[in-house]
Design a protein around this nucleic acid. Structure first.
Lengths: 226, 226
DNA sequence: GGGTCCGCGTTGCAAATCGTTACAAACCGT
DNA sequence: ACGGTTTGTAACGATTTGCAACGCGGACCC
């Protein structure tokens, strides 16, 4: 199974939260952070529009993109139960995230028990998602990682009702490379090679999937994708 | 910060769960599984003795160790909210895990709200832990990964009251290599080199830490370790 | 007790992948 | 149109892998 980042549909759960606190709509310009490492934890966020990257930071300056989030994804859950964040979340384009103050979420969980189980399920899904990528990173060579990444992006666009065969990558080669534990030149080479194989047509950030089965056989998965 | 796998202390929370269901003590022989991919989800487990490895499996046979668990660690939380497991958990030695039936855990959470927040915190800690390893795997070269791994093992032994300077690795070189996204020969060579540098003394699975600061500078962290 | 077998760990050498460096072209916002 | 950023390409080199051989040690059998 291709890793598919949790897009838990909180749907009308949001209404339960609204009864307990104001749900702010936070807009972010490209490059702007939702929150930064070191700030105290007070809220989780639901992505409403645009896309974000999750960056893990080390004290010595090392940096690792650990995921990308788009509409329907929850952000910041990993900080629950901690005083401060250990990661940065940065908008890749003009984006909007809804701020769900955590005390209000907890209160809403008490009155609406199914919200509690949705939240727990979302946390569990986040773990499964991370583990899927660890499997991918640990077992696939560079080119196959890039193929798996493209299939994941395609599947996520498809779930949002967009085309899975033609899309625009929202992140730079550098961010892709960081996430895939590669260098951006290697990502470039892999994309060019997939192009040469006619699995995709790629020009800068625009991608067309020409042979999804080719990509799938390369990524070692058999995910549904039209 | 060195990744330190969540050792959430459920302490007397266990008592709250016992009121709702029998907590079975499950013993496992080396190589035996706690559960396997594909089985229906019904319980989480608290490691009481010994150690386990968590294995992620792909349909095409690829396999990735995503972590090791010892006394005090929770297992199986990632499967909450799913019908079936997607990973294997296998004992590395003679081990014991306490089975906490999930319906009972949920009922106990309703009557003891602090148990609910402990569980949520444990899930969040699991995510942070995975992300720390993704940072490590994505940014450190082979030898530095091995150094970071040894420091993590040492810190975890220390938290259980054992020596952080002299311990026995419970997993094979192959399992270590899988977790660190390397080949077992590379792990062997890295350990030998750390030995040559006099940072450690290693003989098969027995490790003595001679120069923790040397290891730390190599791993790029400044974790406390006596 | 002794012998054998098999898995695990180590090491050397050859090969390949990926990273590094360098440079040029395309694109972006001003 | 301009400078800065992003992306693509190529040659080179380093790290990591693959392969093979060997040693060790525990398990099992006789």
């Amino acid at each position: 199974m291709i890793p598919a980042t949790s897009a838990i549909d909180l749907g009308m759960d949001i209404e339960a939260i609204r009864e307990h606190a104001l749900v702010r709509r936070c807009k972010h310009a490209p490059g702007q952070g939702v929150y930064h490492a070191g700030q105290p934890f007070h809220a989780i966020y639901l992505v409403h529009a645009g896309s974000y990257k999750i960056c893990e930071l080390a004290e010595d300056g090392r940096e690792q993109v650990t995921g990308f989030r788009m509409r329907g994804d929850l952000i910041g859950m990993e900080s629950i139960g901690q005083k401060t964040y250990g990661s940065d979340v940065i908008a890749l384009e003009s984006s909007e995230a809804w701020e769900l103050p955590y005390p209000a979420v907890m209160r809403a969980c008490l009155s609406a028990p199914e919200l509690q189980s949705h939240l727990t399920a979302a946390l569990a899904a986040e773990i499964r998602n991370d583990r899927s990528w660890m499997l991918m990173l640990g077992t696939l060579a560079a080119e196959r990682r890039v193929a798996a990444f493209l299939l994941d992006v395609a599947a996520r666009y498809a779930r949002l009702g967009y085309s899975a065969k033609h899309f625009i990558l929202r992140m730079s080669r550098i961010d892709m490379a960081s996430f895939l534990a590669l260098k951006h030149e290697t990502v470039s080479r892999a994309l060019s090679h997939l192009h040469d194989l006619s699995y995709i047509a790629v020009q800068r950030r625009e991608v067309r999937v020409l042979d999804a089965n080719g990509l799938r056989s390369m990524a070692g998965v058999s995910t549904a994708l039209n």
